[in-house]
């Protein structure tokens, strides 16, 4: 097992799903559930003659940050792009269900339990959504995760961590949007439609998927921070993500509603104002919106060290 202290200094972007999960929680507290020794790999990949993984590409388990039990889901992008199938989807849903069940149990046992002794769910997304080899089961699993989030509301906070190679796209893009809090690094990407598909739909003149800078400023962490779509922008180290989650662990579940972007009638009204701005502006580029938010030199801001970016960036308000 990787040395926990060493993991802390490691790039989140470069880290495997398991290292991210272990490093997120306090040293030595992570217990993997349905881990590789259980050999719960996908029967559907076997039927297709495709390589399988013992954990089906999702690391799930429970650890602790301070007093708080932290249920962790961590997707592995190197295995079929982190795509979600029946087993991986079931692992995600069950982890959230276990957290909800544990919260109910602890509250029933002690109605005066301290807020920071109750469970929290953290999900490290690295996925393009549905795994095509078992697409129908993968799609149904997405709906289950979404439903589990709504059931977790007011009981267990759900935190999204996005800073891995594949980003977070497709159906999992909706799923991440529906969490309570989103923490990204500048290398994280969040959206619905991946760059190649946009290029195919709109033509290379409108959107060149091979232009990495364009791709990052459309869906990357800095842009999502300015848009308010990610709540916190952290450095690309496991310790930085862990530090942000540790701060969040101090809050009672009720305080998490303030971070949400969607999930109530009032929030939908607010998003509608943002969409009205999109209609009015018809931005050709994300930088148009950065400028509108009050950033006079978007390109300079985009290139600034992330520390300076955090200090200087004006976030869009609608």
């Amino acid at each position: 097992m990787a040395n926990w202290s060493k993991l802390q200094t490691r790039s989140f972007l470069e880290s495997s799903a398991r290292d991210r999960a272990i490093g997120l929680v306090d040293e030595g507290t992570f217990t993997e559930l349905a881990g590789p020794f259980d050999r719960m790999s996908s029967p559907h990949l076997v039927a297709l003659g495709e390589a399988v993984e013992f954990d089906d590409g999702v690391v799930t388990g429970v650890g602790r940050i301070g007093k708080r039990p932290v249920f962790v889901i961590s997707q592995e992008g190197r295995f079929i792009g982190g795509a979600v199938g029946e087993v991986g989807g079931a692992k995600m849903v069950t982890t959230i269900d276990l957290a909800i069940g544990f919260a109910d149990e602890l509250r029933a046992a002690n109605p005066k339990i301290a807020p920071d002794e109750l469970p929290l769910v953290a999900i490290s997304f690295e996925t393009g959504g549905v795994r095509l080899h078992e697409s129908n089961a993968g799609l149904l699993a997405h709906a289950e995760v979404m439903d589990a989030f709504q059931r977790a509301r007011g009981k267990v906070p759900v935190v999204a961590l996005i800073g891995s190679r594949i980003g977070c796209f497709g159906g999992m893009g909706f799923v991440a949007a529906a969490t309570d809090v989103i923490v990204m690094s500048e290398f994280g990407r969040l959206g619905l439609t991946g760059p190649e598909v946009i290029e195919e739909e709109m033509g290379k003149d409108e959107f060149d998927a091979s232009n990495r800078a364009l791709v990052y400023r459309t869906t990357g962490g800095r842009h999502k921070y300015i848009m308010g779509d990610c709540n916190f922008l952290v450095d690309d180290r496991i310790a930085a993500f862990r530090g942000q989650v540790t701060e969040l662990c101090k809050l009672p579940v009720g305080d998490f509603e303030q971070f949400r972007r969607i999930g109530s009638a009032a929030l939908v009204e607010k998003q509608m104002r943002a969409v009205a701005l999109a209609a009015e502006m018809q931005p050709k580029d994300a930088y148009d919106v950065w400028r509108r938010a009050g950033n006079n030199d978007p390109a300079g801001l985009g290139d600034a060290p992330v520390d300076d970016f955090r200090k200087q960036a004006q976030r869009l308000s609608v």
């Binding site: 020794f37 390589a51 399988v52 993984e53 592995e76 190197r78 295995f79």
Partner: peptide, 14 residues
């Protein structure tokens, strides 16, 4: 012990 990720051109071992 478990090690590795089943990426393309890669493997995991128990």
């Amino acid at each position: 012990v478990h090690y590795g990720v089943v990426g393309s051109g890669d493997l995991e071992v128990i």
